[in-house]
Simulated scan of single mutants.
Amino acid sequence: MADTMQFDLVAPERNLMSVPVREVRLPGADGDLAAMPGHTPAIVNLRPGLVTVVDDKGSEHEFAISGGFAEINNDSISLLAEIGRERSEMTQEVFDDMMRTAIRKKEAAEAREEKSGAAETAVAAAVKLLADMEALGSHIGLDPNSSSVPR
């Protein structure tokens, strides 16, 4: 078994990383997990959080994501993020934009529920998304209650 695997992190606006890695720690929707070479193949839904990548030299890299999914194979991981930024790029302004997106998703789910009366699980998922975004901001030292984000 090899001691590295190929890792690709892609967000809609750009390819964030493509390198051989020893380990990738992911914020899974059903719980955090680590993937290493030889991992059982899986597709994992991701929640907002930090992705930690340990490259082939042992250096750690962190990325904040707003969600997405990862396809894990025994020799590669492809992560498609809804929104993704290097941890060093996460300013209050960038985080506020991510929060506004989460709030819009919650409001849209509530509006659909109001119209149809049957979208309760979509509202619950949107509320959880917003809570996960707030937790991400708090974890990395940004204010989830910034005055520039309307509530």
Rank of each mutant, 00 (worst) to 15 (best):
S18I: 03
V53D: 06
E86T: 07
E23H: 07
V94G: 08
V54S: 12
D30R: 09
F63T: 14
H139P: 03
P12K: 00
A29P: 05
A111C: 12
E23K: 14
G38V: 02
P20C: 08
S66W: 01
A29V: 12
S88D: 11
A125I: 02
S138E: 07
L79E: 03
H61L: 12
R85C: 14
A81Y: 03
D132H: 01
E23T: 08
P150G: 08
E120N: 09
G58T: 09
E120H: 12
L9N: 03
A119C: 13
E86V: 05
S78I: 13
D97C: 03
D143N: 04
A70F: 06
V51G: 07
A42K: 15
R25W: 05
M98L: 09
G31S: 12
L136M: 00
V44M: 13
I43Y: 07
D97I: 04
I77Q: 01
P37I: 00
V54K: 15
T40I: 09
I65S: 09
A122K: 06
D3W: 07
G84F: 13
R87A: 06
S18C: 04
T52D: 10
A81H: 06
V127K: 13
E71R: 14
D143C: 01
L129Y: 02
E93L: 10
A102V: 12
T91A: 09
Q6E: 13
E62H: 11
L130M: 12
A119D: 14
E110H: 10
G68T: 00
D32R: 08
K105A: 15
S66R: 06
A125F: 02
A135M: 02
D30T: 11
E13W: 02
H39R: 08
I83R: 09
L129I: 01
L79I: 13
G31C: 04
N74T: 12
E62L: 05
A131V: 01
A108T: 04
L142F: 01
